[in-house]
Amino acid sequence: MTSNGRIGAAQPATPLLEVSNLTVSYQREPVLRAVSFSCPPGAVVGIIGPNGAGKSTLIKAVLGLVPRESGEVRVGGLPVDRARDRIAYVPQREDVDWDFPVTALDVVLMGRYRQVGLFRRPGPRDRALALELLERVGLEGFAQARIGQLSGGQQQRVFVARALAQEADLFFLDEPFVGVDAATERIILELMAQLRRAGRTIVMVNHDLGVVQDHCDLVLLLNGAVVAFGPPGEVFRPDLLRRTYGGRLVAFEQGGSRVVVGP
């Protein structure tokens, strides 16, 4: 089940996300070199590559969380800083302090803070939406649970619900399936499919080639620079994967059979 040709002809003039020539360095050492790609509305985009390829850095640089050395990021034609109300971000689980004294409902409500505005508290409608979203991620009954007492998968679902509460058009998920159970993975993949049908775009970092192959419309192969960008059927080629992963072995499905790529 690949997803070739789901987009294409109907591609609108303005991409939802447009990254051009993005370069990022840590202490003068380039981590990302001249990365360019663009995503249409209503697509699931997977970013894959080996450890240290700069996958998380790419998402953080796109969001402006790490400084860009050069390059430009536009969301709906606007610089990313002026389009933050259209963006939601689910960080890697290990980037978050789970000992925090907040309930699951508190966390989901945080997704409403920007819409609510300064000096105001979330109202009954925000609460109703947050409770509804907890239900959508299968956590009804956990609204008042302290976040640290939930399982890894449940925590991830709370953070996905928070992102949904932002009612964004463009979602960034950094390794959403690391350390989560199968049920959580299924729920998040189903939500991603629903968002995509509603014209939203999801950009996710993932290291599981199988998930990317089955669920993404576009795949970015990254190894410090863009190796290839396109539908899975076009980029899941032995030569491109070898260039992405260097000497390491990777396995993926092609035409119903398992293909292993090595040095």
Partner: peptide, 14 residues
């Protein structure tokens, strides 16, 4: 509250 729970997400959401 948003700042102390997760500074990066707070920054990303503007």
């Amino acid at each position: 509250l948003a700042l102390v729970v997760d500074e990066e997400t707070a920054l990303a959401s503007g």
